[in-house]
Every structure is written in structure tokens, then in C-alpha cells.
Design a protein around this nucleic acid. Structure first.
Length: 305
DNA sequence: AAGACGAAAGTGGTTGA
DNA sequence: TCAACAACTTTCGTCTT
């Protein structure tokens, strides 16, 4: 079996691996072929002057590892038996008992939370960076006591949602709800609460950020994709976008672009992918074509059929 | 029969008194 | 705390292809 990979869409072998996002993308048709979760990069520092290569032993420390990938436990009684007085042994054991009591509850919570986090990240095919950001947010939320009175799952979901927004790879609340089995409203509520309490500044998401993913799911050509971004830019310039749901605008732009480039998708199809209703697409669509003077072009295409 | 269109009523969140 | 409000959804009837 050859190891050379081809794009399943256009057969091109001109593939590109984005190390930042971990995605493998076809250069010819922009299809995201694989979204790898693994980061093959090495850890940054070497403490060994002799060894020029930047490497280290052991796994890397990670926020999404419930104990940061480190063990904090003190050695067992048996380990220190030979080198310590009885008094010392007793002291250490007492410390250990306390250590366990204090940490187990928090760690158990954190451990479960990180398991859940990894599940959601994997389900939504998100990157390591997003996972780490979400993990950090969750830790902050826990240390501020924000989880009390809320389910761990809903807090984790909203952390992932926030992390996606921060990394400008937004997912919709519906997608998060599907991945976590938590109600959409609940995630939204928790999200607002957590970001307010942690004072996380998140810009309103840009419709353009949704285009690539929606277009890929709708199997639209890169040309159409570019066209819809163009439409979006013009719409933003005319302030058609402020106060409106970004997914609805993105959906409408894609719908218009698909018409103009003769790759028509139904309102239903676009609505389904974008997680909005056909009515919303129609409203945005109308605004776009009237304000951007695209009516004539649309009519021309209509007449051809 | 399917898609597009739009009116009307309902929902949940924001805002401002 | 409450009412007004804007955006969006749901539902449904009508028209077009």
C-alpha cells in the first residue's frame, strides 16, 4: 500500500499540512482531508547542554492532563523504609493521607472533566490548541468556584465553545449541544456566565470564519467559497451584518454564491448545515441581493433555467 | 412534488426606565 | 423588575418550476 495520500475529492496529491492547526488540506480544492489531533512537534527546552537537539524525556506537560502529566504523590512508605527514621516515616505517611484527602476530590473532578473535554474535542475534530485553551478556561472556572451549581459537562461545553471562538474556528451552539448532549440554551447560559466571571474578552464571531467549514460540508468549489467571502465583505461594508446572527449571514452568502456560480444548493440544504432556518436565509438573502445590486444577475441565472 | 416565498405568531435574550 | 424591542424560529398557505 503506497503511503502517498491523494485528495478524495479531486485526486490531487498536492496536499498541505498546516502544523498550526493540524489539518491536512488539499491545495487544489481546499478540502480539509484530515484534522489531526496529534501534535508531532517536540517540546521546547533542553536542559542538557551537551545535547544540541531539543528533546527531553517523558511526556510533555499538558493542561488537559488532569495532573498536568505530572505525578505529585510522595513515595509510599515502602519506598522510603530503608532511609528514614520511624518518625519521618510517620510524618510522610500523614502528609500522604492529607494529600490524598485534599486532592482526590478536585482531581477526580478534573480527571473526569478532562476525559469529557477530550471526548468533545475529538467529536468535533478540534485541534490541540483549542483543547488546551478550553482546559485552561475550565481550570480557571474551577478555581473561581464557578462550577458549583452547574454540571461539569455544561461548563466544559461552554469552555470549548469559548475556546473555539478565541481561536477563530467557531462552532455553533447546536454542534456543541450535539457533541455534549447538553441543552443548547444551557451551554449558552453557562458560556455567558463563565466568560463574564473570568473576564474573557471574546469578539463577536465573524461570519467569514464559518464559510470554509460550511462550504466544505456543502461540497462547494473554492471558487464559490471565495465568491461568498467577497459577498460577505461587501455586506459587512454596507453594515448589513451588525446585530445579525453570523451563521445566518454566512449561510445566505453561501447560498447567493452558489446560485451565481451555478452550483446551486437549496435553501434547505444550506440551512441544515448552518443550523439556521430557511426563513432566516431568505431574509438575509433578500437584504444582500437588494443592497448589493445582485438582483439582475440572479434574474439572469433564473432565466437560463 | 419540491422548492421558494412571505405573513403571522411565538421564543428567548437584551436594554433601559 | 418589568415592558418594549430586535433577531430568529415555527408554522402554514401560496406560488413557481
Amino acid at each position: 500500500m503506497p503511503f502517498i495520500r491523494k485528495c478524495p475529492e479531486c485526486g490531487s496529491i498536492n496536499l498541505y499540512w498546516n502544523k498550526e492547526t493540524g489539518e491536512i488540506i488539499c491545495k487544489d480544492c481546499n478540502l480539509v482531508i484530515e484534522e489531526s489531533m496529534l501534535n508531532y512537534g517536540k517540546d521546547f527546552r533542553s536542559f542538557d547542554e551537551e545535547n544540541k537537539e531539543r528533546s527531553r524525556a517523558g511526556g510533555s506537560s499538558s493542561l488537559s492532563q488532569y495532573d498536568y502529566g505530572l505525578k505529585t504523590e510522595i513515595g509510599s512508605k515502602k519506598d522510603i523504609y530503608d532511609i528514614s527514621s520511624k518518625k519521618m516515616r510517620d510524618t510522610i505517611q500523614r502528609i500522604n493521607v492529607w494529600h490524598k484527602r485534599v486532592t482526590t476530590a478536585i482531581e477526580r473532578n478534573l480527571k473526569n472533566a478532562m476525559i469529557e473535554l477530550r471526548r468533545i474535542v475529538s467529536f468535533l475534530k478540534l485541534t490541540n490548541q483549542v483543547q488546551e485553551t478550553a482546559a485552561k478556561l475550565y481550570r480557571d472556572a474551577v478555581s473561581k468556584g464557578l462550577v458549583r451549581g452547574r454540571s461539569m459537562e455544561s461548563v466544559i461545553s461552554s469552555c470549548v465553545y469559548a475556546a473555539c471562538r478565541q481561536h477563530e474556528v467557531p462552532r455553533t451552539l447546536e454542534e456543541l449541544a450535539e457533541a455534549s448532549a447538553i441543552d443548547k440554551k444551557e451551554i449558552g447560559r453557562t458560556y455567558r456566565f463563565v466568560t463574564r466571571e473570568l473576564k474573557v474578552k471574546i469578539l463577536p464571531s465573524n461570519p467569514v470564519d464559518y464559510i470554509a467549514r460550511f462550504a466544505s460540508e456543502l461540497r462547494l468549489s473554492p471558487k464559490t467559497q471565495t465568491k461568498s467571502v467577497e459577498i460577505l465583505m461587501n455586506a459587512q461594508h454596507l453594515e448589513l451584518t451588525s446585530g445579525r446572527g453570523p451563521t445566518g449571514i454566512a449561510a445566505a452568502a453561501l447560498y447567493v454564491a452558489s446560485l451565481l456560480n451555478g452550483e446551486k444548493r437549496t435553501q434547505r440544504e444550506v440551512a441544515e448545515i448552518a443550523g439556521v432556518t430557511e426563513v432566516t436565509i431568505r431574509n438575509r438573502y433578500k437584504e444582500i441581493i437588494t443592497k448589493l445590486d445582485l438582483e439582475k444577475e440572479i434574474d439572469k441565472i433564473r432565466d437560463k433555467d
